[in-house]
Design a protein around this nucleic acid. Structure first.
Lengths: 243, 243
DNA sequence: CGATGTCTTGACCGATTTCAACTCGCGTGG
DNA sequence: CCACGCGAGTTGAAATCGGTCAAGACATCG
C-alpha cells in the first residue's frame, strides 16, 4: 500500500507536468500533497472502482495503465479510454456521485487516491488548482469529441493508425520512445475501443506490417514509418500532439 | 440584442432548474445574475463561435437549439452534440483557451453570454456554483461516453431510436410533449451525429413508420410506440431519463 | 412558376463482421 | 519433463449491413 521509505509526492513525481500539479507554485504543490498522499498499488486486471460504487475519490495514475469501460443495460461494454500516468480517473462520476464505469489496470500499476471533497476545498482556495481541474475536464471533453469523429467517420485502418499515433505521442510526452513501445492492452480491448472486432484489428496489424508502417510482435510495436502512419491517421491522431 | 422591458434573469428563466442556477440559493442566484446579464439572439444558421476563436464566454441556451461540430484537418466534420435550452456551450474550449468546434443555431435562438473569468471568480466564492460547474462538466463526460458506445457498438436502427428517445426525454424534461416534437435539425445533421448517411437515416425513418413506432412528416415526429422504440434503443438512450 | 435545397427511394457495391479453424505461448499438474 | 488445456492472436471464406451513386419527389421561397 505504501510505496517506500522515500516520500512519494507530487514534487518528485515523474509525471507532475502532466498531472494536477501542472502550473502550480511550489507552495501550492505542497498543499496539494496533503491531498494526494494516499498511494495505492493495483495489480493487472484489478479495478479501481466499478459501476455503482459511490464516488469518493479521483485517482491519478503514477505508473502503469488503465482502461475505462462502461457497461450497457444489455451487458455490452465499451472501452472509452486508455489512461496513462499523469491522467485522472473518475471525473465522470461527479454529477451522479456514483461511478457508471469501471477502471481496470491493464498492467501492475500505482495510483494516488484523491478524496474529492478535500480536493474541492483546496481548489476553492487555490485558483491555479481550480483552473487545472477545469482544464483537465475540458481537455477530456475535447478528446472525446475527437474519438467521436474517429468512430463516426473513419475507416478501420484510419482508426487503428490514429490510436497508434496517439499512444506513441503520449508515450513520447512521458519520456519514453515514441517509435517502440509495448501495448499494455489485448487486441480485444483495442478493437472494443475502436468500435471494431478483434479480427479486424489483427488483420490491420498484419497489413500495416506488410506495408512497412510498423513491425509487430504480439504487443510489441515498432513504428517504422511514422509519417506514413500519420498520413493514414490523417493527423486525426488525437491528443497530446506535443508538450 | 436585449430581450425586452421585463428583466430576463435566471430567477424567472424557464430552464433554471436545468442550467447553472440549479441548486443555488436565491441569494446566490442573484449574484449569478450579475454574470449572466448579457443576452444574445442568434438566428438560424449563425454561429456562436468558430474554431480558432479565443475562448471568452460560455453560452447558456435560453431558447432554441444548437449543434456542436468539430472540423478535422481534412475538412470532414462531426456533429458532437445537439444542445437544448438550459445547456452550456463552449466548455471544451477552456483547456486551450481557443475554440476547436463551432456551435451553430439550428433555429432562431437566444443565449446568455457568460464571461468565463467572471464566472470563475464567482464560483471561487460560491461553492454551490462551483459544484454545479463540476457537475455539468462531469455529466457531459458521462453523456459522451454513452454516445461512444452508440457509435462503437450499435446498429443504425438502434442509434436512431436512441437519439429519438433521447430528444423526446429532453423535451419532456423541459415541459414539452415527449410524444410529439419537431426536429430542429436536418437529416444530414442527424446522420452526421450518428455516424451514418442521410440516406440511411431517411430509410430508417420510413421503416420506423412502417413498423408503427413513429409517425414522421419531414421534421415533425410523433412517437406512437415509446416502449417499442425504447426496446430498439435498448435503453441506451442517453441522458436525462427523468428529472 | 421555376429554382434550390431537403428528403426519399432504389439498385448495387464493398468494407467489416461473422463464423470457423488453426497457431502460439504459457502455466498446471500428472 | 512433458502433456494438456486455455486464452490470445491470426487467418480464411462467406454473409451482411450500411455506403455510394443516381434519380425523383417535395416543399419553400423568391
Amino acid at each position: 500500500m505504501i510505496d517506500s521509505s522515500v516520500a512519494v509526492s507530487c514534487s518528485n513525481c515523474s509525471v507532475r507536468r502532466l498531472c494536477l500539479p501542472a502550473g502550480l507554485s511550489l507552495e501550492d504543490i505542497a498543499r496539494l500533497e496533503q491531498v494526494t498522499r494516499k498511494k495505492k498499488v493495483i495489480k493487472a486486471g484489478e479495478s479501481l472502482y466499478r459501476p455503482g460504487d459511490s464516488f469518493q475519490n479521483l485517482y491519478a495514475i503514477r505508473s502503469g495503465s488503465f482502461k475505462s469501460v462502461i457497461i450497457a443495460a444489455d451487458g455490452d461494454t465499451q472501452v472509452t479510454h486508455f489512461a496513462l500516468p499523469g491522467e485522472l480517473l473518475g471525473l465522470d462520476a461527479y454529477s451522479k456521485q456514483v461511478h457508471s464505469s469501471y477502471a481496470e489496470a491493464l498492467e501492475d500499476s500505482s495510483v494516488c487516491r484523491l478524496p474529492f471533497v478535500q480536493l474541492e476545498i483546496l481548489a476553492q482556495q487555490v485558483p491555479a488548482l481550480q483552473q487545472q481541474i477545469y482544464s483537465i475536464f475540458s481537455e477530456e471533453l475535447r478528446q472525446e469529441n475527437e474519438i467521436l469523429m474517429l468512430l463516426g467517420k473513419r475507416s478501420a485502418d484510419t482508426r487503428l493508425a490514429a490510436l497508434l499515433i496517439n499512444i506513441s505521442s503520449r508515450y513520447a510526452s512521458r519520456g519514453y520512445s515514441h517509435s517502440e513501445f509495448i501495448l499494455s492492452m489485448p487486441r480485444t480491448d483495442i478493437a472494443n475501443y475502436l468500435g471494431l472486432t478483434a479480427e479486424t484489428v489483427s488483420r490491420l496489424f498484419s497489413r500495416f506490417q506488410r506495408q512497412n508502417l510498423i513491425r509487430v510482435n504480439g504487443r510489441v510495436v515498432q513504428v517504422i514509418d511514422l509519417l506514413g502512419l500519420s498520413e493514414l491517421a490523417g493527423t486525426h491522431c488525437g491528443y497530446e500532439g506535443d508538450i
